[in-house]
């Protein structure tokens, strides 16, 4: 679970379960302000959820960048493959009528 640190601070042997010898990978999402969406900030290695949350706080929120943090085990994220890009996204690009740009945004409405 936790790493054992040898006498020299440089000498670290990890007991992590991952194949690369590191602790497992967690993706970090930070919310820059109340009401704003959580956005992907990066990733951290950690032994468990609480540890991941602390590492995310220290790496991605130490200069006041966030009001909330999500951490998600990287291996539970299901992602589209680069080969899917054509069938997934091309149809959306050439149908202008699907885009809501024909509407005027009333003054005072906040656009994210």
């Amino acid at each position: 679970m936790a790493a054992s640190v040898k006498d020299s601070p440089n000498d670290i042997s990890s007991n992590g379960k991952d194949t690369d010898g590191q602790w497992s990978l967690w993706e970090v999402f930070t919310q820059p302000g109340k009401g704003a969406p959580h956005e992907h900030a990066g990733s951290v290695h950690a032994t468990d959820a609480e540890h991941a949350l602390q590492n995310a706080r220290d790496v991605y929120a130490r200069r006041g960048e966030a009001v909330s943090i999500w951490v998600v085990p990287a291996d539970v994220i299901v992602a589209s493959a680069p080969g899917d890009a054509g069938p997934f996204f091309d149809p959306g690009n050439d149908k202008a009528y699907r885009h809501p740009q024909f509407y005027k945004v009333p003054r005072g409405v906040r656009v994210f």
Partner: peptide, 17 residues
Amino acid sequence: EWCGHGPILEEDIALAN
């Protein structure tokens, strides 16, 4: 004194913070 010597990058940053 741990800066640059932390057991992993994340902890190095945490200790420096």
